[in-house]
């Protein structure tokens, strides 16, 4: 593997200084499950890896009355290992359970999954539908970017040289809300999404009508997509096949899938409709407190 230096600062300010000094040739290292592979294959050529796992701010995992704070370096297993997070932010833990296998989940972080900015990244649709806000620190201070605005192209995002994702924060969940994420893959586990869908719904008191909904799509465009019109189409509508079909149609409108080894553009467009129906129904079941018939990977 390429020769590089390694630092593991404990202060956020030191990490930002190290990243800024290197003029783009320093990379932050969290779980390393993508980064180490990319350095080995020569896709990335860093001169310095800054291990960010010893920085307190990036290890926050705090669920309180005003929402959830998720440090950028927190590994997947810690997230789904917290039952309250699985209950309140189900889409997020649905994602964390299917990113790689168990060994990968021991190390891989949601922050890293977001910063790699893959079009099929399994955490990003969930971050979008749960209203995630990315807290970014850099030489010029701290700024916040909505999860849906973070990725700009395959492997690209809004981070400037020297900037570091510190945490993702989520608003508290509304009453009668539920969320879910799933992907379609030809096998049961350890694969890249052909298409994926995340959804978060809020129902009214009767639990028969949508108050609001957010839907996001993976692997059908250059970045994970926030299908705002699809979610808005459900607001005020009864929970039934017809309203969900309208949301699916709206989601298909904004998708620009490619044809590749995993599927044709037409196939992917069709899958959006199939997955939206299943994911919305699962999110509704969760909001109603019903059991969801879903096994990770199926």
């Amino acid at each position: 593997m390429r020769d590089f230096e390694y630092e593991a600062p404990t202060a956020l300010s030191t990490a930002i200084e190290l990243l800024a000094q290197q003029n783009g040739s320093a990379k932050p290292l969290a779980g390393g499950t993508d980064l180490i592979d990319h350095v080995r294959t020569g896709r990335l050529e860093p001169d310095l890896l800054v291990d960010v796992k010893k920085i307190d701010e990036l290890n926050v995992l705090d669920l309180g009355s005003d929402g959830l704070r998720l440090g950028a370096a927190v590994p997947c297993y810690k997230i789904y290992g917290t039952p309250e997070i699985s209950q309140q932010y189900a889409a997020l833990t649905d994602s964390c359970r299917i990113i790689g296998g168990i060994q990968i989940q021991s190390r891989a972080s949601v922050g890293g999954n977001l910063c790699n900015s893959g079009p099929a990244a399994d955490s990003i649709p969930s971050l979008i539908v749960l209203g995630g806000v990315c807290v970014i620190a850099g030489p010029n201070g701290t700024r916040e970017v909505a999860a849906e605005d973070f990725c700009t192209a395959p492997g690209k995002n809004v981070l400037e040289a020297g900037e570091l994702l510190v945490e993702i924060k989520f608003p508290a969940r509304a009453a009668n809300s539920g969320s879910h994420y799933r992907r379609f893959i030809p096998r049961n586990e350890m694969d890249i999404a052909v298409v994926s869908v995340g959804a978060s719904v809020v129902l009214d008191e009767s639990k028969e009508n949508f108050v609001s909904a957010r839907i996001a799509l993976g692997a059908v465009a250059a970045t994970p997509l926030f299908a705002q019109a699809a979610g808005d189409a459900l607001a005020g509508q009864p929970v039934n096949e017809e309203s969900i079909a309208k949301a699916a149609a709206a989601a298909k409108e904004i998708a620009t899938p490619i044809t590749d080894m995993r599927g044709t553009a037409e196939y992917r467009t069709h899958l959006i409709g199939v997955l939206i129906e299943r994911v919305i129904n699962a999110a509704v079941s969760q909001a109603r407190g019903e059991a969801i018939c879903y096994k990770p990977g199926h």
Binding site: Y6, A8, L29, G32, T33, I36, D37, L49, D51, K53, Y77, I102, Q103, I104, S106, R107
Partner: peptide, 20 residues
């Protein structure tokens, strides 16, 4: 696969310096 602090990890995706 080895166990690192009680968790299974792929040791090819861990830097040895991280094992400090």
């Amino acid at each position: 696969t080895v166990q690192m602090d009680g968790r299974p990890v792929d040791s090819c995706l861990v830097l040895a310096v991280e094992a400090e």
